[in-house]
Design a protein around this nucleic acid. Structure first.
Length: 953
RNA sequence: GCCGAAGUGGCGGAAUGGUAGACGCGCUGGAUUCAAAAUCCAGUAUAGGCAACUAUGUGUGGGUUCGAGUCCCACCUUCGGUACCA
């Protein structure tokens, strides 16, 4: 029988399906293990070879765990709401639901070809009303809770109302948008709308006017992490700051827990660092400066209260509420001009010139609370409205930005820290002795911070405060293709939660998906839906992409449940995700949000663990190779002219532009010598007919009008292209579809090759030049079972000691390497094993039976076929993973490297049981050693039994 | 700028402080073949040598150690994250 991957794959794919081999039960006596992949957004371009990398790794691990006695949950689904489908709908009129369904079907087909052990009966799609009913339900829980800082826990909003009824805001410690204070009587006297506004200040899901990233081209608001480098992450459209009434989630209430619980999870250090940077905790003081005209106070936040005597000016954010109040008539024009300037600047402008300082003087002064000195108040872009209090005391001597500002505007600089005894200490380091600082003089910085904090608190002009960089998550999107908010507003504009029995609130049917006028969601056009009862109107914004993905891992536990997002029984059985595999691009966004939701659900007692993901594995991106040819900028006789990379490099590259070529046409793709051959050239011209009459010049001749004119005796056209590594994307014409690879080499080969490329967490460019090695490995494996003439070779002979050693060496390596996610070395371990068994001519059942089980997680189709050839009736995934028997690995002799002064000089085979002394003696007697020693005195001999011998002279 | 990861043959990469370059690709030679593909065998870090062998060698410079790709210090380069966070 010949090895025919295509046939085998067809056969076992349907067999697995019929026998529901991958269906997982929530009832099991086995210990549970949950392996989760970050679910994909089903884009229109389908999967490329980069996507499955992580899926293959997690699939191997899931299969391995399953064979090792665990009940393994390994599901898959789709993050199916999102902008691209909607943009597509605007362009083509195809309803997003329809486009999404088509894309999902395509993804499914592609995934199925690769042989994953997903339990598809648990599939989730975030755009399915049966799913988003529960996204809406969790949102309502967030809406109906507030966060009590005194017990660090979310509590029902009714309890807050009860507190207000009884004693007003009193001394509650609630996470809030702004500090509020009212008595019970005041509360009782409030109108419904006023009460609603007051409660909004505390709800975890709340509505507030905030400065948001508005993206005009997309017609929607974006979250912080959806904006990169001043443009939208998707599509690269410009964004601007704009105040808008938006739903937000009070993730800041959980900032401290999100930070400290990082210690309890097994994420990479870099991942933890990214998260903690994003949370950005800093300790300092919040303090008040009186304004010199007695008109009030300026509140600032600083981590360096010790530097207060060096504060020669104050800076407030241009959007700060106080700006209008304090600006003096003299300065009104200057401030107005500056504010106008700030408004014209896009985020991109601001970012591109971060070192440029700009600002304006308000004319007002604050007073230093310790010595009463007048400090001018400025406004400047570099102080941000949303961080701290939106105002700082500027200490030019001890802060680089303040220094630049002071220099530009000629403001005084007062040295306050003597760093002379700390050479090399930078301006930011908290080292040195205080000078020019009144009662702090002579103190070390750290002591001064403490001393001044105590003074500030005793004087009642401020208090210690912890600040976070993390900001509340903007939760509104002015889009159609997302979860509708289960919220409606009454005549007074008071927000009401929809009753649970009205969930899900489904998206209305629409035909026009363009944003409605006034920066409103297209949903505003569905008037019947919006004005569903007299005087009331529904919220027309929809939820962002991270809504559905923040809790999907819980839904897989019990995906059909229509009574709860998942039953408590299922949740208590599966608990949390043991292994989560995905890309680093979700480091801050998705991971932060889902950890936050999980903590909220934990507060509610709905999930048993504080963290959703125990261990996180980040797979590296598979990059594409972009292949370009050089087009000369100047035309020749009106014709376009291309030259090959070699010629262009010899001339001036500035005279050429790079034109990307569809990689399918390239010969020796990804190699140094990648080029277009005659056929590739013809394909290129057919693909880009505008270049049909162009001239192509390269070392081997010229190509024009579909004809190759060789120069000299070089027979073939070889038009060198220039390769660069970059993202795999449609626009770069370098997308490699896994289907094509599977078609050519088989799914098992594709799986093993992706693993063989290198460590899974490392980024690497895709190239297929090594794939033939993996392909021939699979054939060799097959060859242990069937001879070339098709004879079944498996026999019942007793295995030899050597054969057992080969097998168990492999078992040991594979088990150890799977545990540390080193899948690339697993593949080489298999190759060694199969090569050695072939050399030994071993086709013994006892050996092969274990080998097939070992290969099962990596090459499930081939393993399944061979497993059945061995006479088994059930699936190989239900078999036990082989266990190493160390006794087969014991060696009779050991090859000892003998070194002199650490340099290897000889290699000697010695019996395994020799003692240190015997080994030393044997080593010293070696001819080569004698020759090297040449009478020199041996100072020391180091013997590590089983490893090496080193002689020191 | 700051934070993190990584620099090893022609290439992808391997190596609990203990034989650097496993495994695979590519390349060279050979077998098989009318021929090719496929397959099989041998070789393949660099320099010198017919060879045995010798010297050098894991980004650079120091250090620790009997022994360093691996640990420590400084620096260089690449990639990822982040960016006026007070």
């Amino acid at each position: 029988m010949e090895y025919n991957p295509r046939e085998i794959e067809q056969k076992w794919k349907s067999w697995w399906e019929q026998n529901q081999v991958y269906k997982v039960s929530n009832e099991s006596s086995k210990p549970k293990y949950y392996v989760l992949d970050m679910f994909p957004y089903p884009s229109g371009s389908g999967l490329h070879v980069g996507h499955p990398l992580g899926y293959i790794g997690s699939d191997i691990f899931a299969r391995y765990k399953r064979m090792s006695g665990f009940n393994v949950l390994h599901p898959m689904g789709y993050d199916a709401f999102g902008l691209p489908a909607e943009q597509y709908a605007i362009q083509t009129g195809v309803h997003p639901a329809q486009a999404t369904a088509i894309n999902i079907a395509r993804y499914r087909e592609q995934l199925d070809k690769i042989g994953f052990s997903f339990d598809w009966s648990r599939e989730v799609q975030t755009c399915d009303p049966k799913y988003y009913k529960w996204t809406q339900w969790i949102f309502l829980q967030l809406f109906n809770h507030w966060y009590d800082n005194s017990i660090a826990k979310a509590r029902p909003i009714e309890e807050l109302v009860a507190i207000f009824e009884e004693k007003g805001t009193g001394n509650i410690q609630a996470a809030s948008s702004e500090p509020l204070a009212f008595s019970a009587a005041q509360w009782q006297g409030m109108s419904p709308k006023e009460k609603d506004d007051a409660l909004m200040n505390y709800r975890i899901a709340y509505r507030k006017t905030t400065y948001v990233w508005w993206c005009e081209d997309l017609g929607t608001v974006l979250a912080n992490d959806e904006v990169k480098d001043g443009v939208s992450e998707r599509g690269g459209h410009p964004v601007e700051r704009k105040p808008m009434l938006q739903w937000s989630l009070r993730i800041t209430a959980y900032a401290d827990r999100l930070l400290s619980d990082l210690d309890t999870v097994d994420f990479s250090d870099s991942m933890k660092k990214m998260q903690s940077n994003w949370i950005g905790k800093s300790q300092g003081a919040q303090m008040f400066f009186e304004l010199d005209n007695g008109a009030g106070q300026l509140e600032i936040f600083t981590t360096r209260p010790d530097t207060i005597f060096g504060a020669t000016f104050m800076v407030v954010a241009p959007e700060h509420d106080l700006v209008k109040q304090i600006t003096t008539p003299d300065q009104a024009q200057a401030i107005a001009d500056y504010l106008a300037y700030v408004n014209t600047r896009s985020e991109r402008d601001r970012m591109s010139e971060t070192k440029e300082v700009s600002g304006a003087f308000t004319g007002a002064y604050a007073l230093n609370p310790f010595n009463g000195e007048k400090i001018p108040i400025w406004i400047a872009e570099y102080v941000l409205k949303d961080y701290g209090t939106g105002a700082i005391m500027a200490v030019p001597a001890d802060d680089e930005r303040d220094m630049r500002f002071a220099k530009k505007f000629n403001l005084p600089i007062v040295e306050i820290i003597d760093k002379s005894m700390y050479p090399g200490a930078t301006i930011e380091d908290k080292q040195g002795k205080m000078i020019n600082s009144d009662f702090l003089n002579g103190m070390e910085v750290m002591d001064a911070i403490e001393a001044v904090l105590q003074r500030i608190e005793s004087m009642g002009i401020g208090h210690r405060k912890i600040n976070f960089k993390l900001r509340d998550a903007i939760y509104s999107r002015q889009r159609y293709w997302g979860e509708p908010f289960p919220i409606a507003y009454d005549e007074n504009g008071v927000a009401h939660a929809l009753p649970e029995n009205e969930l899900p609130l489904e998206l209305p049917v629409l035909e026009d998906f363009k944003p409605a006028s006034g920066a409103k969601s297209p949903l505003a056009r569905a008037e019947d839906w919006v004005n569903f009862k007299p005087g009331w109107r529904r919220e027309t914004d929809t939820m962002p992409g991270f809504a559905g993905s923040s809790w999907y891992f819980l839904r897989y536990m019990d995906s059909d449940n229509d009574q709860a997002f998942a039953s408590q029984k299922a949740i208590n059985y599966w608990q949390d995700v043991d292994l989560y595999v995905g890309g680093t691009e979700h480091a801050v966004g998705h991971l932060m949000y889902s950890r936050f939701w999980h903590k909220f659900l934990y507060d509610k007692g709905l999930v048993p663990t504080k963290e959703p993901y125990k261990k996180l594995m980040n797979q590296g991106m598979i990059q594409g190779v972009i292949e370009n040819i050089y087009l000369q900028k100047e035309k020749v006789n009106g014709k376009s002219k291309f030259v090959c990379a070699k010629i262009a490099e010899q001339k001036n590259l500035d005279d050429y532009v790079k034109i990307p070529v569809l990689v399918d046409y390239i010969a020796d793709y990804g190699l140094q010598d990648s080029h277009l051959d005659l056929e590739g050239m013809r394909n290129f011209i057919a693909w880009r007919p505008e270049y049909a009459d162009a001239i192509f010049e390269c070392g081997s001749g010229t190509f024009e009008n579909s004809t190759f004119n060789p120069s000299g005796d070089v027979g073939n056209l070889k038009f060198q292209t220039v390769s660069e590594v970059g993202k795999m994307s449609k626009s770069k014409y370098n997308v490699i579809n896994p289907d094509d690879v599977v078609e050519k080499y088989g799914a098992d080969c594709f799986r093993m090759y992706e693993m063989f490329l290198g460590p899974i967490e490392q980024a690497k460019p895709w190239d297929t030049k090594g794939i033939s090695g993996v392909s021939s490995f699979l054939r060799k494996l097959w060859g242990l079972f069937y001879s070339e003439s098709g004879k079944f070779l498996v026999n019942e002979d007793e295995p030899t000691k050597e054969e057992l050693k080969v097998l168990h060496t492999c078992i040991k390596k594979i088990s150890e390497d799977i545990e540390r996610f080193s899948f690339n070395t697993c593949v080489s371990g298999f190759m060694i094993c199969v090569n050695e068994l072939r050399t030994l001519n071993c086709s013994k059942r006892v050996i092969l039976d274990e080998l097939v089980r070992l290969v099962g997680p990596f090459a499930p189709f081939t393993a399944e076929e061979l497993w059945h050839q061995l006479g088994h009736e059930t699936s190989v995934c239900e078999a036990d993973f082989p266990k190493v028997n160390e006794s087969y690995l014991v060696q009779d002799t050991i090859a000892y490297p003998v070194s002199i002064n650490g340099k290897k000089r000889d290699l000697v085979e010695l019996p395994a049981g020799m003692s240190k002394e015997e080994l030393e003696k044997a080593a010293l007697e070696l001819d080569k050693v004698q020759k090297w020693l040449e009478g020199q005195a041996v100072k020391k001999v180091i013997v590590v039994p089983g490893r090496m011998i080193n002689i020191v002279v």
